[in-house]
Simulated scan of single mutants.
Amino acid sequence: MKPLDRFISQMVESARLAQTQDASAATALIQKALAESGLLPQGGLPQAPMAPAAPFVDLNQAPGWRAGTSRRHGRGAVHAPHPSRHRANADAQAPGRFVGGSFSCAAGARRYKLYIPARPAQGPRPLVVMLHGCTQNPDDFATGTAMNALAEEHGCLVLYPEQDKGANHNGCWNWFEPAHQGRERGEPAILAGMTRQVIGEHGGDPARVYAAGLSAGGAMAAILGADYPELYAAVGIHSGLPAGSAKDMMSGLKAMREPGKGRKLRQGVPAIVFHGDADHLVNPGNGEAVLAQFLRAQGAELQQHTEAHDHAGRRCTRHTWRDSAGRSVVEHWQLHGAGHAWSGGNPAGSHTDAAGPSASAEMLRFFLSHHG
């Protein structure tokens, strides 16, 4: 049995054990699977009581800022960087303010970080909502994507919502649960409400609001684009999955391995998709499935263009669909040889690939060509 197939089968079995209230056996199996896959030291984690329902299993390695100093050395080891590498607004190219806040509504509450450019606003500012992946937080994601420095150049606000560990102990957005896949409910309602609040309080431009994310954050960005087309003018999905591609934890794991089509969208928003063709955590076919989902929803005849690029030794193929005015409406960046990481990212952040192309720069370029 292949390692990924074995890992998934162990996760499915752990979910069954948890549902039968055999918490200790489920915990032991999860730790065994994570240890065998190299995502956990062989000694495992301290035992802790499990909830009756199994939580979604994070497939990303813990980033260095969470690893502590006692992790093992050798292959698969995670070494903690100096704490200053992950402090808020560590990027010297981003001289603006990086402030904390919170939002609450009937669906729940979440904290966030917001980047406010240093340069004076010349009018309402564009707003980019950045959704981190599993095990990440706003500071780490801002560091890894370097989006704040780009936002400073273009005068954009950047909002980094933070998943609550009480909602998902691995910090994953719950894209795989029906309760968080619909309009005005669950996490999409929280994120949309938070977006509106930041627009109102910080001079955001309601016509230039965008959402992007990595992995679980990419899957949630797809949901926001699907359910709030009047709020988000465009979305960026990096190493994510289509909206509605799962209905629970087990089908979520299956979708990560065997891509589905996702649900039909009522209205299409412009979308830019990045995915590495060597991604062993989220099958690269999911990038194509996201692409197909948003293309089907465009409702207009588009002209396709294909270009090959080489960025710092990383080959990639860019597929572009343009409208009658020549504007790029949907883009798909296939990253050849790339794994599950933010393309062109800063290695000081977790889950990044410095080889490029810069997903942040390309997404921002794409975003700012669209408005609601």
Rank of each mutant, 00 (worst) to 15 (best):
A255R: 02
G200H: 05
E201V: 03
I237D: 07
G213M: 12
G200K: 06
R208M: 10
R208F: 04
P229E: 03
D205A: 14
K247S: 12
A216F: 07
R257F: 04
H238V: 14
A246C: 09
G225R: 07
E230F: 07
A255C: 06
E201G: 05
A234T: 00
M250E: 11
M220D: 10
L224Y: 05
P229T: 12
Y228R: 09
S245H: 03
A216G: 14
R257V: 01
S251W: 04
G203Q: 11
V235P: 00
P206A: 14
A222L: 10
A212C: 15
P242Q: 08
I237C: 13
M220S: 03
A226Q: 03
D248V: 09
A255N: 10
S245K: 00
G200T: 10
P242H: 07
G213W: 09
A246H: 02
L253V: 11
M249F: 06
A207S: 15
G236V: 06
R257N: 10
A221D: 06
I237Q: 03
I223G: 02
A226P: 07
A219G: 14
A234K: 02
G213A: 09
S215F: 11
H238I: 13
L241E: 03
D205M: 06
L231G: 09
M256K: 04
L241C: 05
E258P: 00
I223R: 10
V209G: 08
A219N: 04
E201Y: 00
R257M: 15
G225S: 09
Y210W: 12
A222H: 05
A219P: 03
A212G: 15
E201I: 07
H238M: 13
P229W: 09
K254Y: 05
A211Q: 11
V209C: 15
G225P: 02
V209R: 08
V235D: 01
A246Q: 01
G204A: 01
D248M: 10
L224S: 08
M249Y: 04
M249K: 12
P242E: 10
A255H: 09
G240K: 06
E258M: 08
G204L: 02
D248T: 03
V235S: 05
A221W: 05
H202E: 12
V235G: 01
Y228W: 07
P206C: 12
E258A: 13
A207N: 14
G203T: 06
L253Q: 13
H238G: 00
I223F: 11
A221R: 05
A222F: 02
L214W: 06
H202W: 15
Y210F: 15
R257G: 09
